[in-house]
Design a protein around this nucleic acid. Structure first.
Lengths: 331, 331
DNA sequence: TTGAAAGCGCTAACAA
DNA sequence: TTGTTAGCGCTTTCAA
């Protein structure tokens, strides 16, 4: 494990020169550069990223943080994929942490990001007013929020038009003739949950259908809660003839509940989920969903962060991507 | 953003003393310790992990690397979850990288691990003889391989009994009366693929059934290849009455191919996949699988790594977990 | 029990 | 164009 000094000795130059070669400074004459590169190769030299980060400031440490609430949710996994592709293409390494929708864990990992002096962090905040994220942002750390938006600061954001997506889904259900449409809403305090619920309600109102509070249940975005709440909704009398479920995992849970009750989809209950799944096609029946461009969200966020690293004075950017209704057989 | 020096000044002690307090040295008298802690709190001091890592050696840097081939595969996501839980419980941060089954990418991330001086790395090697991993291990970096095993060195390993799992699956198919059983095998050069294929073949031989090469196709562990190869197998004449698929994503692909051909499961084609899926129950039909204890694999690997950091002289450990056949409705 | 000081591997300001 | 040197924030001897 050789260091700058070793390379410098072997090439008979100073460590500063070696450093210049590494950093592609143009102030090194061809001949010396070649000699240094030869020495580096012979020693199998790799710069120590830790030492580098300790010294370097702002945007050149080639390390980026990503904090995700749930890596087992395919939606977030796809975002990670998008971020990673851009990071790799730019020789950035990525620290990925899992906050588990837990404020304590999120705060811990935010501290890690700071303490690791990453160049910037990408995350869906776990609440609309997330004090820990706000604090880190105010300390000057470049942050890009994805999927969910943050109140109380102007921060780079990539989001999806959740209102529009939900509106179109429910509108589709209405066109199919459904009059009693239930909602399994997402976790409270999330911009996405709120926007999707608003889309649901506005679509009902536009169709002159009543918004019935007993047809609305609030879940926690996990599969089990989708199962439990769908079961509750379908036990109502009269029961909804269609369900709009605010997230992918809960939609799968709802499907399970429907099967348990031996109801036919879509004849007895129609179902639309938010977020696509790679195996939506193989479900029973193939699930109609509002597809979010998750990979693009990740990509765009990483690109936005890289751009900010290049120029801190840029005004906060805000990108809103369009979701798309994919009609399969569940409605 | 305060440093040791700031704390030292405020507490009227030397930086060495502050360092001792941080590291829970017992050589600090109660009174000074309290004063230092008060100063740290007032300044909101957080030690800089980068500076710390630069100075500290061996196993105390509280950073661990995880390199996964595909984060969108629920099996690997579950492993990540297991690793993360142990890491968090021990105040370790985790760098998660995605190698995409690509040797160049894997080599890049292995270099990052070294350059970031992580304490150790956990990964499923992307080939049985993975020179890049071997090299890093020989340089003294603690490594735990998970899922897939590595040839050419004695390294801590957590794996699953793939032979046994496959054997039981095919045995089950045989008991059901199937005589023509097809195999969609996993990517070549993987210990898992080989062991599962061996389990398949031995189970056939034990049942005095022929091992027909035309009933065996080798995939790449992705959904699309499962779809394509299932289609090929089911176009054979006579076609297999059952399919054993060597990984979860390919099993979903196979299911799609079966649906496309409008074949009834399990009446016309029975299906067993390797690796469970959180939504296996909601598939059409609910999928029979060999379930691997992925979370436990991750947990055990992280614990093994932590143990090794505590004592480098330990002999290489080898843990083999048992998979379990979960019978649902696809056979 | 505490402090002074060296140094981890690197970058960057300044000098030559 | 190259070299000298200070110092990033911390841990760790060694001395007091």
């Amino acid at each position: 494990m050789s260091s700058l000094t070793d390379v410098a000795k072997r090439a008979h130059v100073s460590i500063a020169t070696v450093s210049r070669v590494i950093n592609h400074s143009d102030k090194v004459v061809e001949k010396t550069r070649l000699a240094v590169q030869k020495a580096m190769e012979e020693l199998g030299y790799q710069p120590n990223r830790v030492a580098r980060r300790l010294r370097q400031k702002g945007g050149r440490r080639h390390l980026l943080g990503l904090i995700l609430p749930d890596i087992q949710n395919p939606f977030f996994a796809e975002i990670a994929r998008g971020v990673e592709d851009v990071a790799y293409a730019n020789q950035f390494a990525m620290i990925l942490c899992i906050s588990d929708e837990n404020p304590t864990k999120e705060a811990f990992y935010l501290d890690v990001m700071r303490a690791e002096s990453v160049d910037g962090v990408i995350l869906p905040p776990i609440a609309e007013r997330d004090a820990a994220v706000l604090k880190l942002a105010q300390s000057g750390m470049p942050i890009v929020t994805v999927d969910r938006t943050l109140h109380g600061a102007s921060i780079d954001t990539v989001e999806v038009d959740n209102f529009q997506g939900a509106y179109e889904a429910v509108e589709h259900l209405v066109k199919l003739g459904h009059k009693r449409i239930g909602l399994i809403a997402g976790r409270a305090n999330l911009s996405t949950s709120r926007d999707r619920q608003r889309g649901y309600e506005e679509a009902l109102i536009a169709a002159k259908l009543p918004v019935r509070p007993d047809y609305i249940r609030v879940g926690d975005n996990k599969q089990a809660s989708g199962r439990g709440l769908a079961d509750e909704l379908l036990s109502l009398n009269p029961r909804p003839t269609a369900l709009f479920v605010s997230n992918n995992l809960m939609a799968v849970g709802a499907l399970e509940a429907i099967h348990m009750k031996k109801l036919k989809v879509p004849q007895e209950v129609a179902l639309i989920g938010f977020d696509d799944l790679p195996w939506a096609e193989a479900l029973d029946p193939p699930l109609t969903v509002v597809r979010q461009p998750a990979y693009e969200v990740g990509r765009a966020a990483a690109e936005m962060l890289l751009k900010r690293l290049g120029d801190r004075s840029l005004p906060a950017a805000w990108l809103r991507l369009r979701p798309r209704l994919i009609i399969r057989n569940s409605c």
